[in-house]
């Protein structure tokens, strides 16, 4: 293991998250068994009080996990200088078998955290806590994810040795390989951009329907997720080429480097935020209806739809700017 401050911070965050997740999951079982807001017994009252603590703590853990994703990725990029063969974060994640699983789990935790925080806020907005059961059922689902994330992260950091020779991004993101990364790299630039544009249109139409007619929230969530996947593919297949001004450099992580003006953050932050917001819109529509939230949910859905569309638009603007300002000519 490399004794480095960001690694210690991430491990501390994960340890805290795991402890809270375990405790919250145990409490969630009690809530699912005995929660009845109409009951005025002392047991229910104690449960109601305890939910305040658990929700606050779990909410904080979720916020920490969102910040941890950025720290994890940024630090991986920074550590690339320590590994032979590494040029960017890809080399660091590739330094052992746990790097990419840890990153994938961290991204999954990020989206789970964003959705749960949305759920929590909606629940607190209703005077009778109408979503408490759903919220705690969700904790039961998220807790294993948090534990798996902490375990993968620990395994990754413990096995991180600087004397291994890792492979650089140009070895991973090349059409010659087998696997998902190579498939994304091999997709023709024109096709990738068309795919992105179609998904973007779907998002805009679904978002418009939600805002104008109050319908299509689930569709927006699906379109948002499709846009996310199309955007990642397009970044690897074509957008990165424009940023690097290079026809063969497909790495989605080098974008985060200072050499390219940290341009990756202008792409990834709106993309991740937009996807989380769009998925949140779908989730809010799918939640069980309740009287106390009858007026609040539609407003929240509209607000989140506007924000999701704005985030996707920011991503789109960043993509257009990358293409317009590039010296590379891929078409025509």
């Amino acid at each position: 293991m490399i004794l480095q401050v960001p690694i210690l911070a991430l491990l501390l965050g994960s340890a805290l998250a795991s402890a809270v997740a375990l405790w919250a999951a145990c409490f969630a079982i009690r809530v699912l068994r005995g929660w009845d807001i109409t009951n005025g017994s002392g047991q229910q009252l104690a449960l109601e009080r305890a939910t305040q603590l658990v929700s606050t703590l779990f909410g904080l853990v979720m916020l920490i996990e969102i910040a941890a994703l950025f720290l994890f990725v940024f630090n991986a990029d920074r550590m690339a200088t320590l590994f032979v063969g590494a040029m960017c974060a890809v080399g660091t994640f590739n330094a052992n078998a746990w790097g990419f699983p840890a990153l994938t789990l961290k991204i999954a935790v990020f989206f789970a955290a964003a959705l749960w925080l949305r759920l929590d806020r909606l629940d607190r907005a209703g005077h009778d806590y109408p979503l408490t059961r759903v919220k705690y059922a969700a904790i039961l689902g998220i807790a294993p994810l948090l534990l798996a994330n902490a375990a993968a992260e620990l395994a990754y950091f413990l096995n991180l040795k600087t004397d291994v020779i890792t492979s650089c991004c140009s070895k991973l993101y090349t059409p010659a390989n087998a696997g998902l990364a190579a498939e994304m790299t091999g997709l023709a630039p024109g096709r990738a951009l068309w795919l992105l544009a179609i998904c973007g249109l779907a998002v805009a139409l679904a978002g418009g329907a939600v805002l104008l007619r109050g319908r299509g929230a689930r569709l927006l969530a699906l379109a948002g997720i499709a846009f996310f996947l199309a955007a990642l593919t397009a970044i690897v297949s074509v957008i990165s080429l424009y940023v690097y001004d290079h026809p063969n450099h497909h790495c989605p992580f080098c974008l985060l480097k200072r050499d390219y003006g940290y341009f990756g953050y202008a792409l990834y932050i709106p993309l991740f935020a937009g996807t989380a917001l769009a998925a949140g819109v779908g989730m809010m529509r799918a939640l069980p209806r309740s009287d106390s939230l009858a007026a609040i949910t539609p407003l929240a859905i509209r607000r989140h739809t506007r924000r999701a569309l704005a985030a996707f638009a920011l991503f789109g603007a960043a993509v257009l700017w990358a293409i317009a300002s590039s010296q590379l000519i891929l078409f025509g």
């Binding site: 401050v5 911070a9 501390l12 965050g13 805290l16 920490i64 910040a67 720290l71 630090n75």
Partner: peptide, 14 residues
């Protein structure tokens, strides 16, 4: 920035 963020994690979290 990364070191400061990590420092914030290490001190404010506990």
């Amino acid at each position: 920035g990364v070191q400061l963020t990590a420092l914030f994690f290490l001190t404010v979290l506990p």
